[in-house]
Design a protein around this nucleic acid. Structure first.
Lengths: 331, 331
DNA sequence: TTGTAAGCGTTATCAT
DNA sequence: ATGATAACGCTTACAA
């Protein structure tokens, strides 16, 4: 392994000078700079990031904590983050939690020990996660909350406009004539669960429709619970004539189950789902989808992070990304 | 930031002893060990990974270089790798190359500078990539080639059984009565391109069917080129009655284009595609798919890496994973 | 403009 | 069994 020392020797200067060249210090003569650069070339020298970061007590590494990259939702999020990080000469540490607070905690401890420059996190559980994430904040590690909040913490946050998305989607169903609309939502301890339900309730209220708890199903966002939920809805004594499904993974499952029962959409039951995860790409979807630009979500989060890295004093930012109600898949 | 020094002070021992406890050295009295552990607890001390790794000149970081996480194929690959890495207390650096050798090179330089413990790579270009990857090998960084080969390098490799997969798929089409079978394959500089074409040719040969270059389309695996390819095939003076499409992304695109033309599968044209990326999940696929367990692919690669990390002397391994020809989607 | 030297937090060697 | 101390590769005061 070649080190600054080797370069210094070959260039006939001290290691300090090499370091200055490496860090583009202005206080170095042009010809020395040239000689050093030549030595670097010749030896194919790459400064050791570990050593550099240890010395500076600052890395060029960003921790990305998400539930599961296998959830289509996070794929482009991660890519969006990576592209911004790459442009800033930073590198991504990918951490999948499976929504387990304990695995999340383990990863946070590792990221802390790795002295990451910052962390972008989609928390496993908004209340529980705060405790672990606080350790990052206490150690001055910038944190960006993505898609889910960190309520006790004052950190930059980028969210989807959940309430308005579901309010308008529900309104769409209501104006289409539906009076009994089922909801398959997520847990209250996650913003996308809580707020999407709120949007739904808001719409019902503004049209003076009754809120029937028996057709509001709160799940943990998994397909398994979505399957149980849609089953229960369809088995109601008076089944809903429409249903709003509040995540991509669940929408797919609901679609499958409805198909399996031989029911038709929207004649037997109307559906509005979330995210163009799957079916949107391979068939003209038989129902509208609330879509979010997940790539943008990632990019925004990364932008917030690097902005804060550049200037830690700016006020905490909070961004809401708009959604779209899409009736037809892309060509 | 609490350091060994703080712990040592609180426990009333030297930093060396703390380090011994941290590294489970047997040469430390039980009561001192207890005192140190208590101090660690009390201070909530986490050993700095950077410092540790710099000192040991060995990290617990694995570089994962793939073309694009947005390609569904790599999603579970990465997750498979992560799960094994996590179990081994290692962490993942995710690098997307977009199949660009230059971006790949940049990432390899970074990984080298980060002193990663090992690298799992799906090369952008088997010939070009070798040059950059050789730097890793030269620096004794274990490398595992995934899905694509590193021909000039003697490294552990995990591949799909491409030839047999496409031979049997083509055979299936032949025994179904097809005599004029089109092929949409990948480039020769990638194993999945090259070998899948070989399997196709093998099958034709063994049934004494002619090889018609005009219905063999070599693409770069992108949907764009797949679209052009299927268009050309369908516009042939005598169009093929069947087509074998050699990647998941391309299969989806071909499916769309056939649909758009109002043609029906398999009556107008029979299709065999790759990977259960999309349509398999939302509708009973109208045609069979060659599927690979990408999660296993990732796990195997990671296993190879950690095996070599544990014992660098074992002979280079080469694994071929079997595929399945799937006619019906999972329930 | 350049060099010397200390130090980032850890571990390994050598004493004791 | 434990403690001093040097070293990993780099950056940055402080001198010169």
């Amino acid at each position: 392994m070649t080190t600054v020392k080797d370069v210094a020797e070959l260039a006939g200067v001290s290691t300090a000078t090499v370091s200055r060249v490496l860090n583009n210090s202005p206080r170095v003569a042009e010809d020395t700079r040239a000689r050093v650069h030549q030595a670097i070339e010749q030896l194919n020298y790459r400064p050791n990031r570990l050593a550099r970061h240890l010395r500076k007590l600052a890395t060029q590494t960003v921790g990305v904590i998400i539930p599961d990259i296998q959830n289509h939702f996070f794929v482009s999020v991660v890519r969006g983050i990576e592209d911004i990080a790459f442009a800033n000469h930073h590198v991504l540490l990918l951490c999948n939690t499976d929504d387990s607070p304990s695995r999340e905690k383990t990863y946070i401890d590792i990221l802390l020990a790795e002295e990451v420059a910052g962390v972008i996190i989609c928390a496993a559980d908004e209340t529980i996660s705060c405790k672990a994430v606080r350790a990052l904040v206490d150690h001055q590690v910038p944190v960006v909350a993505l898609d889910r909040e960190l309520p006790d913490l004052s950190v930059d946050t980028v969210l989807t406009d959940n309430i308005e998305a579901c309010r308008s989607a529900t309104e769409y169903l209501i104006t289409a004539g539906h009076k009994r609309i089922g909801l398959i939502a997520g847990p209250d301890y996650l913003a996308p669960g809580r707020e999407r339900r709120q949007g739904y309730e808001l719409a019902l209220a503004s049209y003076d429709l009754p809120l029937d708890p028996s057709i509001i199903k709160i799940t943990d966002f998994t397909p398994e619970q979505a399957r149980a939920a849609i089953k229960e809805l369809l088995d109601e004594r008076i089944p809903p004539t429409a249903v709003l499904v509040c995540s991509g993974l669940m929408t797919l499952e609901v679609f499958k189950q409805i198909q399996r029962r031989g029911l038709s959409i929207p004649d037997d039951i109307a559906v509005v789902g979330f995210d163009d995860t799957v079916m949107n790409h391979c068939l003209r979807s038989p129902f509208p989808l609330i879509t979010q630009s997940t790539y943008d979500l990632g990019q925004f989060a990364a932008h917030l992070l690097f902005r804060r890295l550049a200037d830690p004093t700016i006020p905490v930012q909070r961004i809401r990304l708009k959604t779209q109600l899409v009736f037809d898949p892309p060509p």
